[in-house]
Nucleic acid binder design. Structure first.
Lengths: 157, 157
DNA sequence: GCTTGCGTTCGAGCGCGCTCGAAGCCATAG
DNA sequence: CTATGGCTTCGAGCGCGCTCGAACGCAAGC
């Protein structure tokens, strides 16, 4: 009984925003070439503030070129890296780990195995988190469904 | 193609830990009666520290009785509330909101509609977060799968 | 020529959610 | 009888990830 509920709910979550299309679109974005961009454009693209972009640069996550006026110019390589970084941040990877990751990237091909390890571990972390949230979702929906029955089986107040 | 992948992955997430059983178990826990418990027992039950339990109490989230020595005694009502609170915290509800929620509970039956509103909104927040994480998971798995092809379509470095 | 506006650097500050330390009380073990 | 250990209160401190403010530069528009 509950298993079916959980299954259909999971499918609802995946279905509600036509996510496969969006996912493909984002992946395409990540791989595509960009014209050099100004900080505000990148900020809007990634939905973060220019402050945060400067912060990431200070933190050593990405190198950004300057134009003749000292203004930041984000080339496609920087943009692609930032797309990756913001996705990792959004999914909960700590700054620390991202800093370590980029030092690995700078370390060349021989660090590929360790980079893969990090990604595999992060994948598992995301999966755990999704399961955790799915449980909380189930509990919340249960409480919503049974609310008002103070004498009922909820009493979860 | 991608849709099928996403579906089966979602089902995997739900299936990996026999979650329906666990969910039912937790819900049962939440509704069941407990003997009065000491702070350490509650901490272990909820997998949080005694420090955090005292902090929640100071924050006004729960009232806890004392024994003759001034030590905390968690009756089943307090435990049930803490089960709920920690589940909400785990799923990302801010302390602020929980504080507001418990003041509503203290406000009596007439606050039930607002409480329900909060739960509905939180449910939507959890759903959004799950979708967000599912997207990041897809991207991470894609990167893992295509890693090493520096000339390939990934270039997500 | 001056204002407006967007960029720059740097360090400091903030909001959140804990987490800890100091000082003290009480009870049981040796 | 004393020491050990676990509880108490209280306020302070911390780690994270931004977020902001001050002081300044340059360039296009009126």
């Amino acid at each position: 009984m509950a298993t079916d509920d959980l299954m259909s709910r999971a499918l609802d979550q995946l279905g509600e925003d036509a996510p496969s299309v969006e996912a493909i679109h984002r992946l395409a974005d990540a791989g595509g070439a960009h014209e050099p961009m100004a900080i505000n454009e990148v900020a809007e693209l990634l939905d973060i503030s220019p402050h945060t972009l400067r912060y990431y640069e200070r933190a050593g996550l990405v190198e950004v070129a300057r134009d003749s006026h000292g203004h930041r110019v984000y080339h496609s390589e920087a943009v692609r890296r930032l797309v990756f970084l913001t996705r990792m941040r959004l999914s909960g990877m700590p700054m620390r780990d991202l800093q370590h990751y980029v030092t690995l990237v700078d370390g060349g091909e021989q660090t590929v195995p360790e980079r893969l390890d990090m990604l595999l571990e992060h994948r598992d972390t995301i999966r755990r988190r999704i399961r955790e949230l799915t449980l909380s979702l189930t509990a919340t929906e249960y409480k919503i469904a049974t609310y008002g029955g103070a004498t009922g089986p909820d009493a979860l107040t």
